[in-house]
């Protein structure tokens, strides 16, 4: 797990150049660095930008983590390609700075090293997926994605 967490949080320092590119669409964009206003031992605070954009369709760049379950209707969008540790046996071991993407309709899987742009309706706050029990803080609903 430290690998995944660290690898993911490291994005802030080592943002791949590709991610710096501005998404083509004119809609609002959000980066992984902009998700939280404060990260502390006693909890996180969503950023003002997340609160402002909630409910709107926005675009984010990131990487698709391999589906948690083949049948799941969602995938996890991460800031860097993810490698999970040998004992990451639950969704709880994902880092905080992930966004869960619920697709409007099924799309083909892309390689984990491929940068994708996801567009969807932003939603924030703790939410447990009723089917899988997957706990998420940030979601993109009714989403679509394309490779960049």
């Amino acid at each position: 797990m430290p690998l995944s967490r660290r690898a993911a949080l490291r994005l802030i320092a080592a943002l791949p150049l590709a991610l710096a590119a501005v998404p083509a669409a004119a809609r609002e964009t959000l980066t992984f660095a902009e998700l939280y206003g404060k990260v502390g031992v006693l909890g996180l605070e969503f950023s003002e930008k997340v609160k402002r954009l909630a409910g709107e369709r926005i675009a984010m760049l990131g990487f698709m983590a391999p589906p948690l379950k083949a049948e799941a209707q969602f995938f996890v969008l991460t800031s860097v390609p993810m490698a999970l540790c040998p004992f990451c046996s639950s969704d709880a071991d994902w880092p905080d700075n992930i966004v869960v993407v619920y697709l409007g309709k099924k799309q083909t899987f892309v390689q984990p090293s491929q940068v994708i742009e996801v567009t969807g309706k932003l939603e924030y706050g703790s939410w447990t997926d009723p089917e899988t029990g997957f706990l998420s803080l940030l979601r993109l609903r009714d989403a679509t994605y394309r490779t960049v």
């Binding site: 430290p2 690998l3 983590a65 391999p66 390609p81 993810m82 490698a83 999970l84 984990p112 090293s113």
Partner: peptide
């Protein structure tokens, strides 16, 4: 020096492959 080593990433088959970074 730029952060801890992340030697592999997972592909769509669930296999861990060398991290091209």
């Amino acid at each position: 020096m730029d952060g801890s080593f992340s030697p592999t990433i997972k592909n769509e088959k669930g296999d861990y492959v060398a991290n091209e970074a």
